[in-house]
């Protein structure tokens, strides 16, 4: 197990370094931040002054060396736009995104596993057909459309929930619900498929022959074996959420990391882009390690 985690740490570290190098140089190719920070009518003197203040006149390799040196001292640099440490900006956004991702993926996992398992118990039955149709609709509905319709129905017409923003429990309901729909449809289908396969296996037939009850067959005998592909998909969906849910964040005015990253790229706020990428990469690394550990717990073959 230790070897597994050590291997993960080493490979992730190399990936992170490669990512930092690539993003540092590629982001510089997008253009000059001074041109976007200052107004169109800015004088040459103003442009030169801005570049000098932010060290943008130095050769790229000098800028990179300085960046790495600061990074070694855990200094991620200043945000050009916000005039404060880039890491503060990023951690604020990431905290919101992390909460949103954890709540949503927990709800998705629990409901998709329960409903998918029940649906798989009688493939082709009424419940199975109903859940398949609902989950397919969910998996194919565009986020922005669902979000706007949800606001119109639940906030404007019924006045049950606030339209957007943060501040109370009620503010979380619509963003979580909108984020929930797509991964729910996807994971439910994977659970269902995996469970159907397991139900057909010899050990389930043996259990049935021994008179084991349905609940016990589903939740004790089958689910554990059916979980391996499901965990892979959950990990994939969780990684996507940790990168931010741009549409949901934009529409609901949710101050997460997805919108922050897009805005920072568009505004060429390089330090924020780099810090955001490092934070999310680190989070995804931690999550992948947890998934590996989950595999090891569920499947003894992985441990050896």
């Amino acid at each position: 197990m230790r070897k597994l985690i050590f291997g993960r740490v080493v490979s992730s570290l190399f990936s992170l370094i490669a990512l930092v190098v690539a993003v540092f140089f590629l982001s510089r190719l997008t253009g000059d931040p001074a041109a976007l920070f200052l107004p169109r009518e800015a004088t040459q003197e103003m442009l030169d002054n801005f570049r000098r203040l932010h060290g943008l006149n130095d050769p790229l390799i000098v800028q990179f060396g300085r960046y790495l040196w600061d990074l070694v001292h855990l200094d991620f640099g200043e945000s050009l736009r916000q005039a404060r440490p880039a890491i503060d900006v990023v951690l604020e956004g990431f905290t919101w995104t992390f909460q949103l991702a954890v709540i949503t993926i927990t709800l998705v996992t629990v409901t998709a596993i329960v409903i998918g398992s029940i649906a798989a118990f009688r493939p082709g039955g009424v419940f199975d057909r109903f859940t398949s149709v609902v989950s397919l609709i969910g998996a194919s509905a565009p986020d922005f459309w669902v979000a706007i319709v949800a606001i119109v129905v639940f906030a404007v017409k019924l006045a049950w929930l606030p339209t957007s923003g943060t501040g109370s429990f009620a503010h979380w309901i619509l963003p979580v619900a909108v984020l929930f729909i797509r991964p729910f449809g996807l994971i439910l289908q994977v659970v269902r498929g995996s469970m159907i396969q397991c139900f057909g296996s010899l050990y389930v037939k043996t259990a049935r022959a021994k008179g084991v009850g349905n609940a016990s067959i589903i939740f004790v005998h089958t689910l554990r074996n059916a979980m391996l592909p499901v965990i892979t998909v959950i990990g994939d969906q969780a990684a996507a959420m940790l990168n931010g849910a741009v549409i949901v964040e934009t529409i609901f005015g949710f101050p997460g990391i997805g919108k922050l990253m897009i805005d920072s790229i568009l505004q060429r706020d390089f330090n924020v882009v780099l810090a955001a990428i490092m934070v999310t990469a680190l989070a995804i690394f931690v999550m992948n390690t947890l998934i590996d550990l989950a595999y090891a717990i569920l499947d003894p073959r992985v441990r050896t």
Binding site: A155, P162, T163, S164, G165, G253
Partner: peptide, 18 residues
């Protein structure tokens, strides 16, 4: 002051009294 980049949401906020 609150910030909503989607103008439809901004309009809905005034309509609902938010």
């Amino acid at each position: 002051y609150v910030f909503r980049s989607d103008p439809a949401v901004a309009a809905a906020m005034v309509e609902t009294g938010e």
